[in-house]
């Protein structure tokens, strides 16, 4: 297997951390950014380049792009997994202008900046945008839904523009047991037992991102997990 260079945002916790771990286990070279400080990374976090930077802050995405480029030393990014995101499970009336701006900036604008800045470095590689099944418009989280739908529309257009040069894929996970949902303000209930583990989800997402072929927009949920269990042949090849 050829060693690849991956770039993961929001890699210090949640799904992102599992993506980083899975990629690291497979022997890939991983560049990782997140909001938390290095000191706050889990103690068993793999030893790899990490930048702490708030992507929702003014200029945050630019700083992140500079950092990635400074670490590439001529190599290309084989796969960028833009995973960092935030969102709140609450009606619009309970939102604040600051939170609205944070969610739209982090989940959409920062990814536009990263895609724009890294377009040259991605030539021949894959840009994977982590969306959510909520992009269809979830009544409980209007702003988050809007941000993820926007990411979907962005990826859909860009996939067509870059076809043959950079593979662009929007991967929409179903619920994941990372605690994001509880942190977002949703009451924990029976449904949470059905959430896929971040570890399993990360494996499927990494496979989907690194596969030589795949649809531009994909839902990553139970069906996909089942397919992975029944037809595991060749799926690890990437």
């Amino acid at each position: 297997m050829k060693k690849k260079t991956l770039f993961v945002t929001g890699g210090g916790s949640g799904l992102g951390a599992e993506l980083v771990r899975a990629a690291h286990r497979r022997g890939h070279h991983v560049l990782c950014t997140g909001r938390r400080a290095i000191a706050d990374l889990p103690s068993d976090f793999p030893d790899l380049p990490y930048l702490s930077c708030d992507l929702a802050s003014a200029g945050g995405a630019q700083v992140t792009a500079d950092w990635v480029q400074s670490h590439l030393s001529g190599r290309r990014v084989d796969c960028a997994l833009l995973n960092a995101a935030a969102g709140y499970f609450r009606p619009l009336s309970a939102e604040t202008p600051e939170a609205i701006s944070e969610v739209l900036t982090l989940n959409l604008d920062a990814n536009i900046v990263l895609a724009h800045r890294l377009s040259g470095n991605l030539e021949g590689g894959t840009l994977a945008l982590i969306g959510s099944v909520a992009h269809k418009g979830a009544a409980g989280m209007p702003v988050y839904s809007a941000s993820k739908a926007a990411l979907d529309g962005f990826g859909r257009a860009l996939a067509q523009e870059w076809r043959g040069r950079v593979a662009v894929r929007v991967l929409h996970p179903g619920p994941i047991a990372t605690g994001m949902s509880a942190r977002a303000g949703r009451k924990v209930d029976l449904a949470d037992r059905l959430f896929l583990s971040p570890r399993l989800m990360a494996r499927i997402i990494l496979d989907a991102a690194l596969a030589p072929r795949g649809r531009d927009r994909q839902i990553i949920g139970y069906l996909r997990a089942l397919r992975g269990q029944i037809l595991p042949l060749g799926r690890q090849a990437a």
């Binding site: 418009g137 209007p142 839904s145 809007a146 739908a149 926007a150 962005f154 257009a157 523009e161």
Partner: peptide, 30 residues
């Protein structure tokens, strides 16, 4: 209409309009 067709050549515009459509869907019931 780009919400249905996609809009290569206007990626940020397509993004913004898909976002707006999903926002409208989410607000409808509440």
């Amino acid at each position: 209409l780009s919400c249905f067709t996609g809009y290569p050549g206007a990626a940020s515009y397509a993004a913004s309009k898909d976002g707006l459509a999903s926002f409208a869907r989410a607000l409808r019931r509440p």
